[in-house]
Nucleic acid binder design. Structure first.
Lengths: 250, 250
DNA sequence: CGCACACTTGAACCCCCTCAACCCAAGTGG
DNA sequence: CCACTTGGGTTGAGGGGGTTCAAGTGTGCG
């Protein structure tokens, strides 16, 4: 059962003609495949929804009725085993397109790890739009290929990297995207915000929370990173951390 | 550098008009998106190649110039770390479409684990065909989504399953596809041929060859499987093996 | 026969897990 | 204002699943 937000949380089905044009996430998402003139058609089938931290909006095994596009916040995508073991397959941030599935049911669950705003599209209507705008389909294929590459990198991490290397890899991928205005030595690129708890980092890296804690401590002791508080990490030596992430034996 | 087959091994650029129509892999591959009348156009840009066991035909990091479609045999797709650690991301069999990449370089390597025959398509020309036949692009998107689901299942396996569960999962996925004529209790569905050596199974499951050997022995001792020879496994108790693969604690 | 190669088996080790205690900050209520 | 609770994070001690290292066992092939 997909958790439903209370009716009051439905933000707006209104303003379909403008919502998309004003959307800050547009440039980072598949929606940019549709140009301004036709944006109304996209807006008319989109419903904006807000999800509180901990709220889930896709459940593995349920009928795959909708696509989602994250416009704000972070969600975790995960699979579970019957005895409760959890594996997070990825974190979805602004611009991430969700809901591609091979069958008629979702193959994963999605839950907000910090407040999330997302556009929901009926699968059926979105498919209609794809027929009308081939560029949208092309963009979706690109997106799927990109996710495939990420997933294969994740497979390498889980299958062959040590705890230290996994954490280094994770931190490198969590670096904020380089702002075009900032120089290469910018500090901003080395400040990492971690909206998710240790439990989720562990479930993403195939480790336990204790190992996350200890390994963070070890990286800190080696002066590769600093940990000012629980939700932030500063990269002190990006070069060595990158080598570690890449699996170079030290 | 992509290993080149000797010139003599190029099978035929001839018969483009008929090769695809007679291709046994057509029904299982993306090529079925193109109907008989237009099949010549597909054939005209396809080159059939044979690769011997151990020969590699895609190298991680090299420019992604081609797509491949496996029409016979089995190839392993893998990534490597600088110190030689290897992680196999999947085995490509008949009908598997290869070469989707996010960037202009391949994100993985491919090597034949048994003699492979494949169709090679220039990326550029194949893109042209996609413009002409939207059904081909749709089919490719479906294929990418399917691979994504497989990859996420692989992530779950590597992140959270025990060696026993990993091997059980692997064996269940290696079962031959159910032949439509055979009944449900058919023995054929329980006879597994493993063309790849233990080393490759280990590198796929994130384990070592010793653990593969020992765990196969344990499953055999528990009467879940039989191992008549090195390349074959017989599933004796599909139900319990499936439970084990699914992560039910015993 | 003898070599090569893949696989199996055994013993010791180690990285990470498990279990448990502890810390700390943020409520909550009297 | 402080006692109490709660939940996330850290730290410590001990154990175990899988690795490592090493030897042994086929098995095909010249």
């Amino acid at each position: 059962m997909v958790a439903q937000a209370p009716q009051t949380v439905i933000v707006r089905a209104l303003g379909g003609l403008e919502a998309c044009a004003r959307c800050g996430a547009r440039g980072q998402s598949v929606c940019s495949a549709i140009d301004d003139a036709d944006l109304g058609k996209l807006g008319s089938i989109a419903v904006t929804r807000d999800f509180a931290r901990g709220q889930s909006f896709v459940e593995e095994g349920e009928p795959a009725t909708d696509f989602f596009n994250i416009t704000q916040g972070t969600a975790k995508l995960y699979k579970m085993l019957p005895d409760g073991r959890q594996q997070i397959t990825g974190f979805a941030r602004t611009g991430h397109f969700l809901g591609l599935a091979a069958s008629n049911t979702y193959g994963f669950s999605a839950e907000a790890v910090e407040p999330v705003r997302a556009c929901r599209f009926s699968r059926q209507r979105f498919r209609g739009l794809m027929e009308e705008f081939p560029a949208l389909e092309r963009r979706l294929l690109d997106s799927a290929c990109h996710e495939l590459v990420i997933a294969q990198e994740h497979v390498l991490l889980l299958g062959r990297k040590t705890a230290r290397e996994r954490l280094a890899s994770f931190l490198m991928t969590q670096r904020p995207p380089a702002a075009p205005c900032s120089g290469p030595g910018s500090d901003a690129a080395n400040l990492i915000h971690l909206p998710m708890p240790r439990r989720d980092i562990a479930d993403y890296l195939g480790l336990t929370i204790e190992t996350i804690s200890r390994t963070l401590g070890a990286l800190k002791a080696d002066r590769l990173i600093a940990v000012p508080n629980q939700t932030e990490v500063v990269i002190l030596d990006a070069i060595r951390l990158q080598e570690l992430a890449g699996g170079e034996r030290e």
